[in-house]
Structures are given as C-alpha cells and as structure tokens.
Write a protein that binds this DNA or RNA. Structure first.
Lengths: 204, 204
DNA sequence: GTCTATAACTCGATAGAC
DNA sequence: GTCTATCGAGTTATAGAC
C-alpha cells in the first residue's frame, strides 16, 4: 500500500509553512516567527528541526529548484516529433507556472544572491535536461526538419514566453487593470499561442 | 551652459549608493550601514537626508520604475509603420536591459511585495504608454495591416522575449556554462531575432 | 519533542557635540 | 551638514523545564 495519508509530522508542517513564507517574502524578508505561526508551533521547534534560518532556507531553495525541470526529461526522451515535444514543453511549463506562479521570482531573485559554488552543487542534484534539448534541436536541423537556429536562443524564447508573464503578473495586472480571472484566462490561452509562435519560428 | 560637472553633493552620493545596494539586496536585504559605507558617509547622515529607510527606498523604487518606459512613448507617437515601431520597442528594451540588467528582478520582486495602493500612486507619476500601444495594434488590425491578435498577448510576448533573458542570466549562465562574453553576444543578437520573431507572428 | 523564557545580537533611528 | 555614541525594537538562537 502506498502512502495516501497526509504527512502530518511536525517536520512536514514546518517545511510547508517555510515554503509559503519564503516564497512570499524572500529569505531576507521572512521571519522565523511568521514561519512558526504558519506551522502552528513555536520558534524553538524550528531550530530543533533545522538548526538555523539559513539551513531551513537552503532546504526550501534546493527543493524549489528541483521543481524547475518537472517532466521535461521524459518529454525529451519520448518518441515524438520535435514540434510535438516543443509544444509539450511549453504546455508543461505554463501548467507548472499556473500552479506555482511565485516560484520563478523566488528562485531568480534568491539565486542572484547565492554564492556560485552553492549553486553549482545544486545543479548536480537537479540536473537540468539541457543536453538532450540541444541535441534534439541540432539533429533536427541536420535532418532538415527545422530551420537552423541557435539552440540556446530557442530555449530562451521558450522559457521567456512561458515564465515571464507569471513573474510580471502583479505589475501587469495593476498597469492594465486586468482582473485576476481575465489574466488567468490569458495564461490558459497561452498554452496554445506560445507553442504556435515558437514552432512558427523554426518551421521551414 | 548645461550641467556637465558630476553632481558630487552628498544627497547624490547617497542615492547612487542606495540604488546599488537596493538593486543588489532588495528592500528587506539592504542595510542602512551598507548604504552608508557605499556612500562613504555614516548612517546618521542617511536619516538626515531621507527620514527613514522606507523613504529612501521609495525614492529609488519610483525612480527605477520611471526608467522602464523611457523612449517608448516617443516611439509610439512617431510617424512609422507598426513593424518599425515594434522593432524599435524591442531594440529599445533590450538596450535598456543591457545597461541595467538588475532592474527587472528588483522591480518585479519588490512590486509583488508592495501594497496595491502604493503601486497605483506610481503609475500616476510614470504613466506607461499602454493605451497608445493597444490603440496602435487595434487600428493596424482594422486596417488589415496585421493579423488579428490580442494586444496584451502581443505585449506580453515582446516584454517576455526582451526582459526575461536578463533576469535569468545568473542562473542560465551557470546551467549552460556560457561565459559572460558569449552571453552578452547572444543578447546583442536578440536585438535582431526578437523583432523578427514578433513581427513574423503578426505579419499576414 | 515541545514548550516558555531569555540571552545575544542586528539594525533602524535619534540625541547631541562640533 | 556631518559626526560619534547610544537607545530601543525586533530577530535569531539557546537554555532548561516538562
């Protein structure tokens, strides 16, 4: 039998609470008191489970990065055409962002404050499927299936189009006075338009 | 005669230092001591010029946002075709990002933490040229110059493609082991490819 | 494991001399 | 205007009882 019951251990409650607070306020803005409150315990217990705020943060940060490349590897390894794969990647990323829209800002703003060697360690735990992607594009070009493009430029385009709109949501919503519902509808629509746009740019 | 000499007043030194520290560490992460050190003065003087950290931050934040829509209005008002205008907007944004690559992360992460009413005030000081853009797209569609597209979706695509690669730079550079020089070259190349991509998506 | 109480420290802000 | 010295609030972290 598989674990179905929710994990109600204190450690789990703390991690849930810490995620919420850190994502919202960032490392510097988060308070151990806030996290303790959100977890329904007291500060001392936080230190009992995770020696320091620093360590608790690293836990959350590393785990968050693990969620960056969700099902990408399996998509890339699948038996599909380049176009199908690219569409799936876009849809997968946008879906992921719909569920955790605060993730990209958190990761990008905290990553720029972490020392390099720390980040390097993380990539070893959570290898991004970069080489498979580059390989897919390069062979597709050789086989004449798509126009010659710089694989990294293409990747940047995909990531930009999928992720940025979620990062800019608070600001764009304000500026454009688009309400939450409308904005969400736009994001849903992008699951179709973004792959179209990307594929159009490489189709011969 | 115009002011050519550098403004060496204390106030100016403080603002320079505060910009640097706030951009780097964010509001919560920045320390008044850091800012004082960077400005070559002491904490007390910071409070003499700007009553509180809060006020100093607002100064920087509002000014930073003011730099977001620099030449966009004049581009939109100019006598050019839609395609030329879109190309100019992309080039203008990417150029801006090359000069101040830390700006988007700073603005977006702080914006998501600021209360709404505070942001609303800012848009009154620094009106983003949103309506001119939407108007341009809508009339171009009516005149049959471009395909029918949702103006906001188009704007999102432009902003995403121009801005995101700079936000993700620290992370992408690490993951891909692309060095600084190569990355900068890629960004330069995007001044051509991004407008092409965007224009291709609306050209009939 | 979990709590209360408190130590140890950081940081924004002010007082007051020059 | 600029400085040194210091206060006081808020925070991380620990001691010690249960």
């Amino acid at each position: 039998m598989v674990k179905i019951k929710k994990d109600n251990s204190t450690e789990h409650k703390i991690l849930e609470a810490a995620r919420q607070i850190f994502f919202d306020k960032g490392m510097a803005g988060a308070r151990m008191q806030d996290i303790a409150d959100a977890a329904g315990i007291n500060k001392a217990l936080l230190h009992y489970y995770f020696r320091s705020k620093e360590r608790l943060f690293e836990n959350i940060f590393i785990d968050a990065i693990g969620n960056l490349f969700p099902k990408l590897s399996s998509i890339l390894e699948s038996e599909k055409t380049v176009f199908e794969k690219i569409e799936l990647i876009c849809v997968e990323y946008i879906t992921q962002m719909q569920q955790t829209p605060y993730l990209p800002i958190f990761i990008l703003s905290e990553a720029s404050r972490q020392p390099e060697h720390f980040l390097k360690q993380i990539w070893n735990k959570h290898k991004p499927p970069l080489k498979p992607f580059v390989y897919m594009i390069e062979t597709s070009i050789k086989q004449g299936k798509i126009k010659p493009v710089h694989p990294m430029q293409l990747l940047m385009n995909i990531l930009s189009l999928c992720i940025f709109p979620f990062m800019a949501k608070p600001l764009l919503q304000q500026v454009t006075s688009i309400n939450k519902k409308e904005y969400d509808a736009m994001m849903k629509e992008r699951k179709k338009t973004v792959p179209q746009l990307v594929i159009q740019s490489i189709k011969k």
